[in-house]
Computed example of a mutant assay.
Amino acid sequence: MKFFILLVFVFGTLSVLINGMPPISKDYNTHCRCLQVESRIIPPDSLMSIKLVPQGPHCPETEVIAGLTSGEKICLNPRSAWVKKLVQFILSKQLHHQGGAPPKNQA
């Protein structure tokens, strides 16, 4: 009987190792965050933050989540022309900002 329990335990462990386990962290999400997306243009003074969530195993689409000054968070349609321009602007601004910073010394 002990041999049977040990055998079941070993096969269970092998099954988990072979199939893999998803990473465990607070940021790991197994599904898309955006169930509905907005295509309407949001005035720039209403935008407080923009978060880009790249596509991955959790979601086949890139997600653009806007934080509004009202505290509300909405998902923007990444296929809308104005959202594409906004994303390009943010990415170019980040790239320019990173390019202007002096390189960090590595120890």
Rank of each mutant, 00 (worst) to 15 (best):
G100Q: 14
P78C: 08
L14D: 03
G12I: 06
K51Y: 04
F3V: 08
I24C: 04
F89V: 03
C32G: 09
L52E: 09
L35H: 14
L76C: 05
D45E: 14
D45K: 08
G67V: 03
I74P: 00
K26S: 13
E72N: 10
S15K: 10
S46W: 05
S80W: 00
Q98M: 13
S46A: 09
G67R: 04
C75G: 06
H96C: 01
C59S: 04
I5W: 07
F11T: 02
R33M: 12
D45R: 10
A66G: 03
G100T: 09
F11R: 00
L6W: 06
F3D: 06
L14Y: 07
I74R: 01
S46L: 13
G12T: 10
N19W: 09
M1P: 07
F4R: 07
T69I: 15
Q94M: 14
L52H: 06
Q98N: 15
S80C: 03
V83F: 02
M1F: 12
C32W: 06
N77S: 12
E63S: 04
S25W: 05
D45G: 01
Q55G: 02
I42A: 07
S39Y: 01
L86H: 01
P23K: 13
R33H: 11
V10F: 07
N19A: 14
P23E: 14
V87K: 07
Q106I: 15
N77L: 01
T13I: 14
A101N: 11
M1Y: 11
L52R: 07
I65A: 02
N77P: 01
K26Y: 07
